[in-house]
């Protein structure tokens, strides 16, 4: 062997080491007594008797309370359905705008991505609190808050799935003289459909759970009722509501399983 011409080593090989270092540093800071979060397990030992009492109360749910939970339960479900529908219908085109293969224009892509990063960084409870102040107590602010949450989640995950897909087929659309919108409709859409349906079902499940919490700030659904019984220390009634949510989520899980198997 003579004259083996080894190509120059690409730069950037130090990146994994740097990443490891940063992670270790962050962990160390988090656990350090000066800068880290302050927490201790002694709080549990101090208050455990208190906790046991509550748990015993919760073990005997007050079933006579059921009729009063029906309407809020349905409202929670309705909020989740509407928010999922609106969020996913808006999220699909936005996902395509946010992904490189379906939107090569870096200006609009960055714009959409940045906007959605901001949308996603605000917690849904904060949306709900602000919206309740703006449009008043009820299901509407809850739905709007959930739509914001859904947009953030769907666009992030679906656009990432578009970027992970093979892009050769989109090139076939360009070669045939299609516009970007035509190509996305005819070729990108069928390819992302499974990921999109999965994400939609997933946010629906999250919405059912979240809409119970949103009520705590006045944004409709079961949360309003939870807030009321909690104020009167009716842990037996609270436990009935929790039981209902549990059953609802389990049912929805089955339901989305069935849909997933049919469609994906």
């Amino acid at each position: 062997m003579t004259d083996l011409q080894i190509p120059a080593k690409p730069r950037g090989r130090w990146k994994p080491y740097a990443a490891t270092l940063v992670i270790v540093a962050i962990t160390a800071v988090t656990l350090s007594p000066q800068w880290g979060i302050a927490f201790g397990f002694d709080a549990i030992s101090r208050n455990w008797q208190n906790g046991v009492g509550k748990i015993l109360e919760m073990l005997s749910p007050d079933f006579s309370f059921f009729p009063r939970t029906v309407a809020p339960l349905l409202e929670t479900l309705q909020m989740a359905v509407i928010a999922t529908l609106v969020g996913s219908l808006l999220g699909l085109p936005l996902s395509m705008w946010a992904a490189r293969p379906t939107n090569p224009n870096s200006v609009t892509r960055t714009l959409v991505r940045t906007a959605l990063n901001i949308v996603r960084s605000v917690p849904d409870l904060l949306y709900a609190a602000v919206l309740v102040a703006m449009v008043g107590v009820g299901a509407l602010p809850g739905i709007l808050a959930l739509v914001m949450f859904n947009l953030g989640t769907i666009v992030k995950l679906v656009s990432e799935s578009i970027e992970a897909n093979d892009t050769g087929l989109l090139e076939a659309g360009s070669a045939a003289g299609g516009t970007r919108a035509q190509i996305n409709r005819a070729l990108a859409l069928p390819e992302v459909a499974p990921a999109f349906i999965n994400q939609t079902l997933y946010v629906f499940e999250l919405n059912v759970r979240a809409s119970t919490v949103l009520g705590l700030v006045g944004a409709g659904g079961l949360g309003l009722l939870i807030d009321a019984v909690r104020t009167f220390y009716r842990y037996d009634q609270l436990s009935l509501i929790i039981l209902e949510i549990l059953i609802l989520v389990l049912l929805l899980d089955k339901f989305s399983d069935v849909i997933r198997r049919r469609l994906v």
Partner: peptide, 16 residues
């Protein structure tokens, strides 16, 4: 482009 057909090594079909 609409009048130029193109065929690729990897077929480039939308599989789904």
């Amino acid at each position: 482009r609409g009048q130029i057909g193109m065929i690729f090594q990897g077929f480039n079909l939308a599989k789904r």
